[in-house]
Amino acid sequence: MIQNLVDGVLVGSILSLGAIGLTMAMHMLRFANFSHAELLSIGAYAALVFDGLFGAIHPALAEAIPPLSLTWSLSIAILISMALTGVSAVLIDRLVFKRVRAKGGELSMVFASFGVAMIIRNILGLIFGLSPKLYSQDIVFAIVVSRDPFLLIKPDQVFTLVAALLIMVILHVILSRTTFGYALRAVAENPSLAQVSGINLSRMIVLIWLIGGGLAAAAGVFYGLTNQINPVLGRDLVLPIFAATIVGGIGSIYGAVLGGFIVGLASNLALVILPSGYSPAVPFLIILAVLIVRPHGLFGEERT
């Protein structure tokens, strides 16, 4: 039980990072982006490539930072991957979504996002192979924190949680202390008023993709670090991330953070009563529950 709680918080932090970008883009561009979770995959694989590259350039970089399995090269690779994934998100918008937006309605964008997801997922599979990959072949033993109740934690998990929380704190400071943050929130609340208040919407869309992509990349790497990297990572995470945005209320950044933790915890706690095979269905049950009890989520506003 306590193990499920701890695992749930960890998974929750990863889902939160993914959901922040999704909720912003969904709110501003008004479409459910089913390809957002593929940004996590892009991020995870980009970090894998650069991790290997740096390790090859300088062997010292390939050494793990004890007690983690995380290497110096991977730490740098995470930052590069965040930037690259952010840029990919902007490019995908330019190449596909922007054009579909100009041609058709919001629902065409949803269709297009499914197509984009399928293309990205399978191209990653073609490039990197269908079998799972790991950042490190070294086995890092989990630390037994407690025997009764039994609780195992890996150092990498602690790092992931701390890093995810740190990223969220930085984001919070930006949102609550800088005029750029006010502008982001203003755009989320009322795009047309934001525009007449001097905010350039199309530049803001680019920035939102950059941030969303960057956060998704971090989430992808953290997922890879604590699980494994495979081409269907996006397929497996898309529903939980959507569930997180719906729990939090579409458009609410803080809601997405909270929603991520709620979905992570609920999915892991569900394992106490359900066989693990059923866990992919849990996010759907959460979505249904929210739609019945509080359709606009914890912090969402009513809008149709």
Binding site: L107, I246, I287, H296
Partner: peptide, 12 residues
């Protein structure tokens, strides 16, 4: 609700 919800729920 907003059309997104139907898309997400049916996918779910």
């Amino acid at each position: 609700l907003r059309h997104d919800y139907l898309a997400i729920a049916t996918f779910g």
